[in-house]
Amino acid sequence: MFPRPIQERSRSRQLMYKVALPISLIIWLLPMIAIVATAGRSLSDLNRGNYWGMPSEWAFIENFAKVFGSSSIGTYLLNSVIITLPSIAGALFLSTLAGAGLALYKFRGRFLILALFIAGNFVPFQILMIPVRQLTLDLGVYDTYWGVILFQIAFQTGFCTFFMRNFIAELPFELVEAARAEGVGEWQILVHIIVPLVRPALAALAVLQFTFIWNDFFWPLILIQSDELRPITLGLTVLKGQYISSFNLLAAGSLIAALPPVMMFFAMQKHFIAGLTLGASKG
């Protein structure tokens, strides 16, 4: 193990480590602590200029009630859910198929297709912006949920296919060969042999995609115009204008916006990190 386990060090070093750990954590998380603390700050504290000192009282409930009561944050949250879930489902469906297609069959050009999927995922959004906007206009889905959902499915399929292909390529190929020797059809192999085995990969992708799509700001900015269709990331910019001096309310709104992906992360941590660190431990 590197560095040397702290247990093998002197007592004083161990003590230092145990003190340094929480302190560094607090400094690192200061921005998050600031959001939480501000979200609970009362109006009277703000009026008194007490922005960062010890709050004289906690006003979480009032602030959250006020945000939900005086802004469209409820709608924004719902919109985020409406956009995120179908996008994940679509991307996972398409990429399981394509990942299997690229991993289980040998044909010329499979590396080229894989390379296109990977490369497409890294391009700057701006090179897609004008044509994609035009495309959604032509398809009649501009300024609808569907415009964003279709784009997200298509774009995220690139990364997901890469991920699924790698996962399927690591599975024992003998299973597929044995099934083929038995005369099992390819579709049956996919549904009954591959899909049950790739469940962990699907879980990892689902949590990753949830945070990517939930936190995405650019595509709804480009493809959605109506306030009542805005997801929470765009909604926050509206709140920023609305609560120009009510920091506590803006903080409460930010906290609400950040919460779903954070909860998803803590609930599915193992899957999440497995997805994100794909390839980081290979030689």
Binding site: I113, F117, L128, I130, A154
Partner: peptide, 26 residues
């Protein structure tokens, strides 16, 4: 031969329409 084509086509079609072709258009 048919299976890989059928499996890859939907994803590749969507990806081409929303990512690859827009790059060329831009």
């Amino acid at each position: 031969i048919i299976a890989p084509v059928a499996f890859i086509t939907p994803a590749f079609a969507m990806f081409s329409l929303f990512v690859i072709y827009p790059i060329i258009q831009s």
